[in-house]
């Protein structure tokens, strides 16, 4: 059978979500952000909730989320996405509201807003992409940077004695009564991507059931910031990031799908 015969509408088994605008992602080649951005729209499309979903983009690499998504999007001030989501969800309680934030946004400048929104149990989905660095501004040290890791503001490696320890904010969120579902995933292998997609689905389903805050961390590489190739950085992430940020569910309320 010729390839041209296989490439036929009736044989289609996978295509990018129709809820993407078609604009090329602005992320660096190989960046996991693109995978997560894509997965969110796949879940929204599969749940058929595109008319009822509003996304909130942060300040960081994913600030231009609204260029890629054919849904309503609000761009929030740095770190304030969960506060913006709170205001929006409170006046639109039957809509699906999600924030998409990086570690600089969510775990540094937005720590207060993150903790309190999750603690109030705002019925929202928080998607947290943790690559241990400030990608957009050029690879500076983040609260999540692991010990010894070199960044442009820790050029001799993060020294925990003076620069503090990596912040596992997801563990803190898991300890909050308002959070109903807290998980840490990755997108470096096809299996990991499938798991992340399932986690995102659960996180959105929880909104329908008004369960509280769902929090999905995705540990991700930033090979531009880390000064590696995409494949090298995925290996480096497995060897160095995962010991600090072990994958898996941190909190699952009873009865969750």
């Amino acid at each position: 059978m010729e390839v041209q015969e296989i490439i036929n509408e009736k044989n289609l088994v996978y295509q990018p979500s129709k809820l993407l605008t078609g604009a090329a992602f602005n992320f660096c080649p190989g960046c996991g952000h693109g995978t997560v951005v894509r997965l969110v729209m796949e879940v929204v499309e599969e749940m058929d909730i595109q008319s009822d979903v509003i996304g909130i983009s942060p300040v960081g690499c994913s600030v231009l989320l609204y260029d890629f998504y054919n849904i309503d999007v609000i761009q929030a001030a740095h770190g304030r996405a969960t506060a913006v989501a709170t205001g929006l969800k409170r006046v639109l309680p039957d809509k699906f509201v999600f924030t998409y934030q990086g570690d600089g946004d969510l775990a540094a400048i937005g720590t207060g807003e993150t903790i309190h929104a999750c603690n109030r149990g705002e019925n929202i989905t928080v998607i947290y992409v943790n690559n241990g660095t400030y990608g957009m501004t050029g690879g500076q040290m983040a609260p999540t940077t692991i010990p010894g890791m070199k960044t442009s503001t820790s050029p001799r490696g993060r020294d925990v004695a003076t620069m503090g320890h990596p912040l596992r904010i997801t563990d803190i969120v898991a300890s909050l009564d308002g959070a109903c579902y807290v998980t840490r995933q990755a997108v470096h292998t096809p299996a990991a991507v499938r798991k992340t997609k399932r986690a995102l689905r659960t996180a959105f389903e929880n909104q329908k059931l008004k369960r509280g805050t769902s929090f999905v961390e995705v540990v991700c590489s930033c090979h531009s910031g880390w000064k590696m190739t995409p494949l090298q950085s995925n290996r480096w992430m497995e060897e160095n990031m995962f010991p600090y940020y072990p994958l898996g569910d941190l909190k699952v309320m009873n009865g969750q799908t």
């Binding site: 609000i74 929030a76 304030r80 709170t86 205001g87 409170r90 006046v91 807003e113």
Partner: peptide, 26 residues
């Protein structure tokens, strides 16, 4: 009418930003 005590003025004004985005009187 939603009335919510925020954790800070920073959060409060950003909640206003979110609710105002829905076209509501906030």
């Amino acid at each position: 009418m939603i009335v919510l005590q925020a954790e800070s003025e920073v959060a409060a004004i950003n909640m206003v930003y979110g609710a105002a985005s829905a076209g509501r009187r906030v």
